[in-house]
Design a protein around this nucleic acid. Structure first.
Lengths: 251, 251
DNA sequence: GCCCCATAAACTGTCGACAGTCGGCAATCG
DNA sequence: CGATTGCCGACTGTCGACAGTTTATGGGGC
């Protein structure tokens, strides 16, 4: 992954190199061009993108804050490798955030909110057989972001966005999702119905079900994929890489 | 805030300049050495600390990811200015996270957990009249980190830690807290009792009360402090500074 | 006296370079 | 033949410098 293709060289150039490098790197990681745990060489990336190391370093820091890569002092950056336990944690946190968001929204649910969500569901359903399902995932996440936004807590939205990057990361690990449009539509309309009912308990039930389905799907796919390739494809690909070790210490 | 004191120059120096600069900056901001919305000059900071701009930039990026500063392209970094609405959001998110954590813990509450939490409460109570209360705030947060850690979701802990930096930020805005040790003790023992009962509802009630008290205290102090100094001390100190504008866009 | 514009200073974004450190490889010793 | 140690290459951490942009300053017009 260190060939200096001229296509890459011309791919970048306008304003804000850092953000562009970050976008490029994000896309490459999500697309699976790098293996989990793989080392990202600043020099190689800089050469490949035709920029100096400074923007690459800053972009890598950005991705680190988003949980897409981890850094080791004097060793550089590595593509974040999520294990099953971390995956569970990610979905558990997602549940935590979305429960709160939907309950907030249910307590203050207006016609405009309903219309906006309804519209997004239609957009989502209209993507019948899109390219690989990646677009569908984005529109799906957009629905959830919208729901959280309408809930009114912007800090909560930020927390969800942070988590979103990790969701994309683990989705990148599995085969492309191919959930049927009908199932997606039904799953989201359940949320709309719950919101319309104004019953907080029903909302909670709906979001629990919704996220539970997504979680099971990802976990199952992850199991399959890790079984496929020698079982060590996900965890332990890079020896000594312990993501967010800082988090461990309580004091 | 741009004098190049030699004391600062010698304050830094060993390994990992970025982290040291980040710590220094964090402490300075928390201590209130910079006004909310104040511009942080890379050059001035670099000169002041006796390092080059590169580590300062990376440290600033780190603080940005922690929500302590915000960046504007071509303009630099500014100390994050929290307004009342954002403060509400922060505490609402905290409530969301801690509710989830305590409920997880309640469902799997062991003797070791109880002992660890009990010990931390004792540590907290033993800090009767510590220096300015800053130490007390840290030990208080440590209790909550411990509770979340015992809950078992590490990603949740990371989310809380991120939020913690913003909590410190708004605490920095208000006068030093002087809650009585008895009140602190009681407030935390309420949580322990709720956990011991094993009743999720009681846990939720306890954490709601606990965080509600903290929120009211901070909000009240914030109101006072912003009334003190011409009402614009908190919001709008730097024109055009809109924190985390990225979060706004849903698509 | 106030506002607008031009000029100058200051600062950020980016770059290339140097030094210290880490990992791998080979030669040496047990 | 295996383990250890020293060396070599590669890479990260840090630095100083240059270019383009933003902000501050001062002069002129109304």
């Amino acid at each position: 992954m260190s060939q200096s293709n001229s296509e890459d060289v011309r791919a970048i150039r306008s304003t804000n190199l850092v953000e562009q490098v970050a976008d490029h790197l994000t896309e490459a990681i999500i697309a699976g061009h790098y293996q989990p745990g793989e080392r990202l060489s600043e020099m190689a990336l800089a050469r490949s993108l035709g920029v100096s190391r400074a923007p690459v370093r800053e972009a890598a820091r950005l991705l680190e804050s988003r949980g897409l890569v981890v850094s080791q002092p004097r060793r550089g950056f590595f593509v974040r490798a999520l294990d099953a336990a971390e995956l569970e944690d990610v979905f558990d946190l997602r549940l935590c955030l979305e429960r709160h968001a939907i309950e907030r929204l249910a307590l203050n649910y207006g016609e405009a909110d309903r219309a906006a969500l309804e519209h997004q569901v239609e957009v989502l359903c209209s993507l019948a057989d899109d390219a690989g399902g990646s677009r569908r995932i984005e529109e799906d996440l957009k629905f959830h972001r919208l729901m959280i936004t309408l809930g009114g807590n912007r800090r909560l939205l930020k927390a969800f966005n942070d988590l979103t990057h990790e969701l994309r990361l683990c989705i990148a690990l599995i085969a492309k999702t191919h959930e049927s449009p009908e199932s997606i539509a039904g799953s989201h309309r359940l949320l709309l119905d719950a919101l319309a009912s104004g019953d907080v308990g029903q909302c909670r039930e709906a979001i629990d079900y919704h996220i539970g389905v997504a979680r099971d799907y990802v976990v199952r796919s992850l199991d399959n994929s890790s079984l496929d390739k020698n079982g060590a494809a996900i965890s332990g690909a890079a020896p000594g890489v312990s993501p967010e070790g800082e988090v461990l210490r309580v004091d």
